[in-house]
């Protein structure tokens, strides 16, 4: 029963956040300006502008537009793209898997390298190994991912010719973009694993486990890892948004056919409806991933389950 209650609570919270997020997106973009002048350019006449506004429904009062926006969303209608002259969802659908593949690979790489590096740093806190690991993490955090992408292209495509410089298709196409993008989660995961782990290592139950004669490995992996993983798991959820953003520039560098390059195309053609649909899809993805993570959290930490 408590499990069901827990799931229901989390689901409700996620839906509320999603509703607020898409509303926020609607008002921010409407209040930031009128896209018609951007679409038509500075030379358009008043009549042309008025006609375009009517076509896009921008001539109606704001709240009435909002009502239409929400009711359409509830029927899973994301509007029509100006550039592709097709439904936005249809356009997005053709690109979304490529984005998930890229962002997912980057996240996996980030965790696979970040967690051990952070654990290593925490176990050697204050010593040289810690300094080196922490330096790698800070450096990773300080790099524009798309710049790293270009440098990787220079080295591994132009010079060495090991990997293709762009497009998609084989696993070889995925390597460079995924590695570039993975620096975002890797740096964060390393730093957080380190600080979370070194905090957990100070907990009395760790001293108690050692006092009970458990070996270093049993303490580190059997007791410290799971406990220090909790904030890291939360971070992975929060990073989902950052990854989607990072993917936009990385996709631009590698001509990767995902949502990011779609967004770049959309903004060039002033395709306001498509851009709005992309923001909404991004928000849905973010909220869904974080919902899964919240539920996972309950699976790992019995205290949270019981608190619900």
């Amino acid at each position: 029963m408590t499990t069901l209650r827990f799931i229901a609570l989390k689901l409700g919270g996620a839906l509320l956040t999603l509703f607020l997020a898409v509303s926020l997106a609607f008002f921010i973009s409407r209040l930031s300006g009128d896209p018609t002048t951007q679409i038509l350019g500075g030379l358009a006449t008043q009549d042309q502008i008025a006609a375009k506004q009517a076509e896009l429904g921008l001539d109606r009062p704001l709240l009435s537009q909002y009502w239409t926006f929400i009711t359409d969303l509830l029927q899973f209608d994301l509007g029509r793209s100006l550039r592709f002259n097709r439904g936005n969802w249809e356009v997005i659908q053709s690109r979304i898997m490529a984005s998930f593949l890229l962002a997912g690979s980057a996240m996996v790489l980030g965790v696979v390298f970040g967690v051990p590096l952070g654990m290593y740093a925490a176990a050697r806190e204050g010593k040289r190994g810690d300094r080196i690991a922490s330096a790698i993490a800070v450096l990773g955090q300080s790099m524009p991912v798309f710049w790293l992408g270009m440098v990787l292209v220079l080295v591994f495509s132009v010079r060495l010719g090991w990997f293709p410089a762009g497009q998609s298709g084989t696993w070889k196409h995925l390597v460079l973009p995924a590695v570039s993008l993975s620096t975002i989660p890797m740096a964060r995961v390393t730093r957080l694993t380190r600080s979370s782990m070194s905090e957990v290592l100070e907990e009395p139950y760790i001293a108690a486990a050692r006092a009970r004669g458990l070996g270093g490995r049993a303490v580190m992996f059997g007791h410290a890892l799971k406990n220090s993983a909790l904030p890291v798991i939360t971070l992975i959820g929060l990073q989902a948004g950052t990854l989607l953003s990072g993917a936009v520039t990385v996709e631009a560098v590698f001509a990767w056919p995902g949502l990011g390059s779609l967004a770049t195309q959309a903004v060039q053609f002033r395709d306001a409806p498509l851009v709005q649909a992309l923001v909404i899809v991004g928000a849905v993805a973010f909220v869904a991933i974080n919902l899964v993570i919240d539920l996972l959290y309950g699976l790992i930490d019995p205290r949270i389950r019981d608190a619900a």
Partner: peptide
């Protein structure tokens, strides 16, 4: 040598 610490809950791992 067995050891018992002060914090009753603190000396047990909360996740196990």
């Amino acid at each position: 040598i067995g050891t018992v610490f002060q914090q009753p809950r603190g000396s047990l791992n909360p996740l196990k």
